[in-house]
């Protein structure tokens, strides 16, 4: 089948590419854009390791076609740290609170938590657990992931408060 041209904003950069209609967004990101942060876990929309942000929504990029990202804004884990390398509060939280062991689920966890905190900047632990219920971790038992997201929420809220003062 003929390839289709797509144009999107990927981690703040304008990108144009040719994709097959059947290309999944995760394969486009990993193989054409060389952004291998989002992982391919289950490939069946269950595990959440491929989660990226697409137009303000967390999506499982194994179940979205690359052509559906035409005109969209996509953020992956590679777009989270500041250009000078300063970690995002969530990345710092996962490091500080030991929110990972093998790290396979972490990019998806962080991207999902990122959108959760945009929508609910001060979630309860129960809301965090519900918020990341579409992301599986086989190592941590989730306890430290919840702490990591709590850490990031507190840090981001304090920064907002300081900016207001």
């Amino acid at each position: 089948m003929a390839k289709m041209q797509i144009s999107l904003t990927l981690n703040g950069q304008q990108v144009e590419a040719l994709v097959e209609p059947r290309s999944l967004l995760i394969h486009f990101l990993r193989e054409q854009m060389q952004l291998t942060g989002a992982h391919i876990g289950c490939e069946t929309t269950h595990c959440g390791a491929c989660t990226v942000d697409l137009d303000g929504k967390s999506v499982k990029s194994c179940t979205v076609l690359a052509v559906q990202a035409d005109g969209a804004e996509v953020t992956t884990i590679e777009g989270m740290a500041a250009p000078d390398g300063t970690l995002h509060a969530l990345q710092e939280g996962f490091a500080e609170m030991h929110g990972l062991q093998c790290g396979f689920c972490t990019p998806g966890m962080i991207m999902r938590a990122h959108r959760l905190l945009q929508e609910n900047p001060n979630p309860s632990d129960a809301e965090i657990r519900t918020g990341i219920s579409g992301n599986l971790c086989r190592c941590t038992g989730y306890q430290n992931i919840v702490k990591a997201i709590r850490y990031a929420a507190d840090k981001m809220n304090n920064a907002t408060k300081e900016a207001a003062e």
Partner: peptide, 9 residues
Amino acid sequence: IADPQVRYV
């Protein structure tokens, strides 16, 4: 229904 990511779509 499903999980947060699926409910967005």
